[in-house]
């Protein structure tokens, strides 16, 4: 690691000021992606602003129509939350499958979304559930948030405060983990809500994306059978030593069907 100056502001407002004042500042929430990156000397920030302990960013609120989760809420907290398990069990399941238990004890939802790792789990839920990302400056719809590989709509200095998820009628999540890293090789989140059916895929492309052919096929029949004939094209999908684009495309179908079975179960 290159050296940096570490700060632990006492409030979100102070964090914003520190971030803006730093030459090349980075937010530190759970650090489960940032610290490994720094250890490999792949980044050289001048300042780390630790927001991991800000109480105002760590909460779960549910009101029957939506679940709102503060940006620095740990994955383990979301996974264990009675409110989340009741309102959107698929979201709790997703959180409980991120990384490993120790990573879940540190990693945060805001950190995951801001990083937009192509193999992260949360983006699939955010997109499929049609969540809204609340920042220090605005509210961003999920559909407008993920822009590409490690790229989001966040502007420099903008900090995620919370994410609100509308409670769906039914939802399911299934992932196929990359065997070595256990990150998502393919993850599919399916959701049926009053507003319609949404299917989001993570792990397979540069960032999470919606699978519109499946959404169309599921609109009238929200079941695994309805997408049997939907062909997933490998064009544009990721390929690496663990998984070709063709196999990824195939897994999108399998994971989607299994997520649907779970959602309907």
């Amino acid at each position: 690691m290159y050296n940096f100056a570490y700060h632990r502001p006492g409030s979100l407002a102070e964090a914003e000021r520190k971030l803006k004042a730093a030459a090349d500042g980075r937010l530190l929430a759970g650090g489960q992606t940032l610290l490994p990156t720094l250890k490999q000397r792949l980044a050289k920030p001048s300042d780390l602003i630790d927001i991991g302990r800000l109480a105002e960013l760590s909460f779960i609120k549910a009101d029957g129509r939506s679940v709102q989760i503060g940006a620095t809420t740990r994955h383990a907290t979301v996974a264990a939350s009675a409110e989340v398990r009741k309102a959107i069990p698929a979201l709790a399941k997703l959180a409980g499958g991120i990384g490993d238990p120790q990573v879940r004890n540190m990693g945060t939802i805001g950190g995951s979304l801001a990083n937009s790792d192509p193999a992260a789990d949360y983006p699939a839920a955010v997109l499929a559930l049609g969540a809204t990302i609340h920042t220090t400056e605005r509210a961003i719809a999920a559909d407008d948030f993920f822009k590409g590989l490690f790229e989001t709509a966040l502007k420099p200095g903008e900090i995620i405060k919370s994410v609100s998820f509308p409670v769906p009628e039914k939802a399911g999540y299934m992932k196929f983990a990359q065997p070595a890293s256990r990150f998502c090789m393919v993850g599919v989140f399916v959701c049926k809500a009053g507003s319609g059916v949404r299917v989001a895929v993570t792990g397979a492309g540069p960032c999470a994306f919606r699978q519109s052919a499946m959404e169309k096929a599921l609109a009238s029949n929200f079941s695994a059978a309805a997408i049997e004939s939907v062909k997933v094209s490998p064009a544009g999908l990721n390929a690496d030593i663990h998984c070709s684009a063709e196999y990824r495309a195939h897994l999108v179908g399998v994971m989607a069907r299994r997520a649907l079975t779970e959602a309907n179960g």
């Binding site: 065997p179 070595a180 890293s181 990150f183 030593i241 663990h242």
Partner: peptide, 18 residues
């Protein structure tokens, strides 16, 4: 796994070596 051309070790960490 080594990259056929460059000879770089592709499975150089627990992220890729299972």
């Amino acid at each position: 796994v080594y990259d056929d051309r460059s000879g770089q070790l592709v499975t150089g960490s627990y992220m890729d070596y299972c």
